[in-house]
Every structure is written in C-alpha cells, then in structure tokens.
Design a protein around this nucleic acid. Structure first.
Lengths: 348, 348
DNA sequence: TTGTAGGCGTTATCAG
DNA sequence: CTGATAACGCCTACAA
C-alpha cells in the first residue's frame, strides 16, 4: 500500500478575503463584513450581490482574523479524566451537540485522573484560545483556581452540585444520590452491603458517594465492606472476586459505577453466583446497556446528557449574553430493575 | 442553590501583549517575538530578561493573532459518527493524546452516521480553522471530497485500509479481518453461522466486513443468517432473540461489533442458552471488557489506539514537515478466548 | 445604506 | 544580535 497524498497540486489561486470581494463587487470591505455578520443595515440587493460573489469565489471567512478583531474565539475547552469511559463520552457528546447548535466548538483534553495534568491541559486549552472551561468535579489545583479567578476565565464544574472554590457547578448531588441507593437496598432488607468503587485519589465524586453511603449506614446500622478497585470492568471483576472469596455474608453489592457492576455480573457468572437470588447488585450511571443486561441492572440514573446540555447552554449564555452561571443540582433517580431483590427472598 | 458567577470583578488591567513587554524591557517587539519562538538569535541575557518580564506580567500569547500572522492554527478536526460508543472514544483518546504531544489541538464533531451531516460538520470544522480532517470510513459525500480536493485540505480516512476517493486511509482491512473470523469459526466446525451486525446504511466498515463474510462463506459452503440491528447492546439482544426464536440450527454467532456481542451474551443468559456449549459467540473490536466477560469473548482485536496515534502522527508530519500521508493497513488479530468452541463439542 | 480608516497581537522581512 | 515596520484578514466606530 503506498497511495500518497500530494501536498502541492496546481497552485490554487490565493484564497479571497473581504478586500477581494469588495473589489469584485465594487463595494467596500465594510459592506462585505456587514453581510458576513448579518447586519440589518444592508439593502437586499447589495446583500444578494455580495452573497453571489462569495459563493462564486468560494469565500470562507478567516476565523483567526475574526477572532483577533472581535476578541472572541467561540471555542470552549473541556478537561475530562478520560474520554474512553462511556460515561464521559456520553457527557461530551451532549456538550458538543449543544455547543455546535450555538456556533461554538468544543476542544477536549484528557487528564487521566491526575490533577496536575488537569492544570497543565487547562492552560493549554486557554492558550489555544478557549474562552471558557469545563472541568470534572469540584476538586482542582489551587494554582489553576487562582489563575482562572485572576484571569477572569469562566469555568463550570461538572458532575457535582456544589463547590467550595467559588466556581459554579452544574451536576448532581453525589451524597444524596448514594443515600438513595443505600436507602433502597436497606428497604429491601439488606444490612450487610459491599461497596465496589473506583480509586479515591483525585476523584471527589467517588469520595462524595462514599460519604453518602457511610452517613446512611451510620444511621441505619448497616454493615459495610469497601472494595476499592480500578474504574474498569476488570476492576469490577476483581472487586467481586474478593467479596465472593471472603464470603463475609454480604447480601448486596453496590457498585459506584455501572462499569463496575458489569464486572460484578461477569464474575458472578464465573462463580456460579446467581443475581439477584444469591446477591443483589446495584449500579450507578444507568449506561445504555443497563436496562438490557441479564438480569437488568437496578441503578441510579445520572442525568449525564442533560448535564452536558445545561453546561453548554450556561456557557453560551454567559459568553453571548453575560448571563451569570448558576450552580444547579440536576435530579438523579433510582431505576429499579431485576438485579436487586429482597434480602432472603431466596429462602422462600 | 444559587451561587452565581460574577462576570466583571475588579477591572483587571488589560492583558499585556508583545508591545507592552517591549516597553517594559526596553527591547523591541521583534525580540520579544523571538524569545517567544525560541529563536536562537537571542542573547542569553536578553532572553532571560524577557522571560522574567513575561512571567511577571502573566503574559500569554494570543493564539488568534499568531494564527493570523503565521497562517497556521495547529488545530485538527475529526468527524466521527458518535463519540459515545466506546470504540470511537478509544480512538479519539489516542488521537488527542498524540496531537497534544505535538502541540496540536483536536476538535471533534459528530455526524450520527449521517453523511450529509458529516459534510456539514466538516465544513464547520474547517471554518473554525482546522487545518486537516480525520474522517471515518472511506465513504463520503461527493461534495465534501471535491471541496477537500479543491481547497487542498489534508484529510485521512480511519478504520479502513483503502479508499477509492483519492484520500489516504490509515486503518485495517475489514474484509480480510472478517475472513479471519469466519475462517476461525469454520475451522471449529461451524457451518451454520448467524451474523449480527449494525445498520448497513452509511457504514462502509460494516458493509466491508459483511462482504468478507460472504466471500468466505461462498467458498466454504457455510450457511449464513444475517441479522441487522442497531449498533447497541440492545440491538444485540434483539438480534440474538430473533436468532434464538427462529431456531434455524446456527451453532455460532458472529457479531460484527463487540457491543453487539454483549447484547447476545445478555440475551443468551435470559434464554438459558449456554455459551459456548449451546452456541459459540464471537465479537469484533476487543473492547476493554471482552477479556473479562463470562465467558471471555473470542474476538478480533482492532488496532484502534495505534490507529489513532498513527493518524495523528501522519497529520502532524504532513503539516510540520510536509511528509506525504501514506495509506496504511494496520494489523488486526484474532484473539481466541472462551466464548467459542468446536461445533458439537457438547455432544461429548 | 454605504465608505474610510484605524486597530486587533504576532510574525517576518529587512536593515543596522 | 537587535530594531523598525509592514503585513495577516477582519471588524467597527465614525463619516458621508
């Protein structure tokens, strides 16, 4: 295979700019610029003439020049831990769609759950011209926060419903949500519950959920067993394997991410453990497959898509209309399906 | 909740530019620009003095101005069908990482498997200043191809190993790969095979794989049953449900995407069908969970990450060094695991 | 409704 | 090694 792409074919005539169009139409650059920006002070005739000329010349406005002149780039940056987890990609998908709808572009950078990398990538995005930032969670490096504040750069924290940093957040209440999950399981009669979760380091969402779990357990004499593991399917299998091996009498497993629950499902299958007969399993996220798993997965539905839209819209409103961003908590809801059952129901 | 983010706090002093730095250091803008671009014709003393001044003033170069002056944006655009499928996000993750390493930014747009949307989004990316494009597959609208060609815009097709459009491709050979899968299944003794696959419309990768499947079957008297469905886990469950219901005697199911195989796994679980005892199941992609499923999934490992890196690198080389892009086929390999078994092995 | 002219922040081409 | 100055392509008062 060696089909090469040639760089310089026929020396195509230089790209036309506003001046060229002005010359071509006998009008001034100002007028060209006006039709470009849909100014209403242009006669229909003139507008059409210009548009014809633009089409004919294959004119494309130069975004850099425009950005320089207007001091606006219409670019928004997002730093996420990873893009390969379906939860973040679902979020970014929503953000991108909403931004595109308003003529903004999204540029993405990944931090790999490392806050210092997050800071670095955030600066890169800003250097690139991003006018605002979307960050994950409420926990960020002091230096970054100071910089954002000092440079007056808009930023929104996702996936959390509050921050202590002064930055606004649009997300959901991780603590409350974890309590809802625990309350449901507790209501089913489970009093020994295993918690499978991802790394606590640099992930305040996970920490908040655990905080919720603990505070609920504390008030309802529920015994807890924590299994920290990688935030992957494999991590889920490992967490489950340890739980099954220890055989500590847990009757339910609460996974703080659906992806972990998938691992638990697989491991249970391998161990001949039946869900929910032998053990109830619950997730967090409501990924696409959750409803179609076998058994279907009881989980907490996080408003990932809505959150993406809201964040994008909030930023657009801020940038376009100076509408201040308000911190908002979106609703997360319990979705009861077949992977959970009453404790001891198999005794029947 | 109503913490608002204020837009105008203390009227921060105007951002310094090269001229301000020139004034501050008593040097000329040219010199400032030189240290900015690591020109080697600057004395160590001067360089350090400038760098001190930059740090002190909190100077940040304006990317739009630079882009305007250099006629380079260092932005690359990618149009993918969707970002929420793990396969595309894994790809983009790799692209983004490699581009970032070379000082390029990635801006993403989604087409939802609609070619006319792809064209539209591609134009948007270019209007935004993207210097090159990454497209999915070899099939694209005539108009877009003409435009890319006429405007001499670099572009690379991903996920395929050849094109008929003149655009270079960096990917894998879908036909050959499908043959490898079929050959493996056939070698296991399977002669009635069901194929579960996503929509054929606007997806040449799927069509190529099917072409490979058919050509193999043709030469080895293998009976085929095709089930087209959505490219989701749910789609996989529906395809499997139909296959199980028809009970046409297929002993193996080849899923043209792992995501579909997951659906098949779930549906099999629901129907009390054992894998691989009752039916062998095979996937395509080797997603993260494939190795840890129960049973672990035999599949074709696509070089998604490598492909992303290679594409990014090729574009960087083209843009930075005018190195032509060469069409390349990356290796995809068969990964044998536990979801497949010899036909009739259960008779033992 | 349309035109003129200056400026946006950098780079790059000359001289010195 | 450093400095002046003209682009880069577009926007936007201010005029007409």
């Amino acid at each position: 295979m060696r089909i090469v792409q040639k760089m310089d074919t026929t020396p195509i005539k230089k790209k036309p700019g506003v001046r060229a169009l002005a010359k071509a139409t006998g009008l001034s650059v100002a007028t060209i610029s006006r039709v470009l920006n849909n100014s209403d002070t242009v006669s229909k005739d003139t507008r059409e003439k210009v548009q014809r000329a633009m089409a004919l010349a294959g004119y494309r406005p130069n975004s850099a020049a425009r950005a320089l002149a207007t001091n606006r780039t219409r670019v928004i940056g997002a730093v996420v831990p990873t893009i390969s987890g379906s939860i973040f990609s679902r979020f970014l998908n929503a953000v991108e769609g909403e931004l595109a709808m308003h003529g903004y572009a999204l540029v993405i950078a990944t931090s790999g759950f490392d806050l210092s990398v997050e800071t670095k990538r955030a600066h890169e995005l800003l250097s690139m011209g991003a006018e605002a930032l979307i960050l994950s969670g409420a926990q960020h490096e002091e230096g970054l926060l100071d910089f954002l504040n000092a440079s007056n750069t808009p930023a929104i924290c996702s996936s959390v419903s509050a921050t202590t940093t002064g930055l606004p957040a649009i997300g959901y209440d991780n603590i409350k949500t974890a309590c809802i999950a625990m309350d449901y399981l507790h209501g089913l009669g489970h009093s020994k519950i295993a918690i499978v979760h991802g790394p606590l380091a640099n992930n305040d969402r996970t920490r908040l959920r655990i905080q919720g779990v603990k505070s609920f357990a504390h008030g309802h004499k529920v015994q807890l067993l924590f299994q920290e593991t990688d935030l992957t399917v494999e991590g889920g299998t490992r967490g489950a394997a340890r739980i099954f091996a220890q055989n500590g009498g847990e009757t339910a497993i609460l996974c703080l991410s659906d992806i972990l629950a998938l691992g638990v499902f697989f491991e249970a299958g391998r161990c001949g453990i039946s869900i929910p007969k032998d053990v109830s399993v619950m997730g967090f996220d409501d990924l696409d497959w959750a409803a179609h798993a076998s058994p279907s997965l009881t989980t907490i539905r996080l408003p990932t898509g809505t959150m993406g839209q809201r964040i994008a819209k909030a930023l657009v409103d801020l940038l376009d209309n100076k509408t201040p961003v308000e911190t908002r908590a979106l609703d997360a809801s319990l979705v009861v399906r077949d992977s959970t059952a009453c404790c001891g129901s198999s005794i029947v």
